[in-house]
Simulated assay, not measured.
Amino acid sequence: MTIEHIISELLPLCIMAFALGLDAFSVSLGMGMITLKLRQIFYIGITIGTFHIIMPFIGMILGRFLSEQFGSIATIIGSILLMGLGFHIVYTSMSHDDEHRNVPAGASLLLFAFSVSMDSFSVGLSLGIYGARTFVTILIFGVVSMMLTWFGLLIGRKAHSILGTYGEVLGGVILVGFGIKLLFSV
């Protein structure tokens, strides 16, 4: 396996992980405006990273099953799901007002992590149909989203006014782009 092959395989996954993590990053920016202890920041990042591993894993398993059963039709469906998810992220990020968010803890942290990782389930579904490497993909998704969450929480006070909604919009646009690329690779 050459270095060019490794880069051509990992670069799209890293970009996609970054796009998915921007949702958690944007939400974390708003949450970072609340005074948080380092311990809370640590747990929030770990929880979101874990959900960004679990959700695409479930999606990839289901995507592989659908791909085996339905072939190229499943690939087309996966690309449409990815584009739809991207458009949905752009729409919701532009239509909702920024509101004061409370620091999630316990069950509310799990629900919060689940909600910001739902998009990674759909991406995992699409990648499972496409046949991406499971372990590498979910590891990249989890680590990138965890790091972006921590980064967002730590710089929230200063960066929220700059990136807020734009981070989510950029993430949605990137997902639409990957959906289009996947659709034309059929």
Rank of each mutant, 00 (worst) to 15 (best):
S8A: 02
E99W: 01
K37N: 14
L38C: 11
A24W: 10
S28L: 01
I174G: 03
M55W: 00
H52L: 04
L66T: 02
L22E: 01
G131H: 00
T35E: 14
L11T: 12
I174W: 03
S67V: 03
S122C: 10
L36C: 03
M83Y: 11
F178Y: 00
T137N: 12
L163R: 07
G152Q: 06
L38I: 14
G171I: 05
L170S: 03
H100D: 12
Q40F: 15
L148A: 12
G59T: 00
I44H: 13
G131Y: 01
I73A: 04
F25E: 03
G86L: 12
M16D: 15
L10K: 09
I53E: 13
S28P: 02
I41A: 15
T134P: 10
S26N: 04
G106V: 02
F141Q: 12
V176M: 00
A74I: 02
G164Q: 12
L36I: 01
I73R: 01
L38N: 13
S93W: 05
V143L: 13
D23C: 10
S79Q: 05
G142Y: 00
L13K: 12
D119S: 10
F114Q: 13
L154A: 14
S117E: 07
S28Y: 05
I162S: 14
S122E: 08
P104S: 11
I138F: 03
F18L: 04
I162K: 11
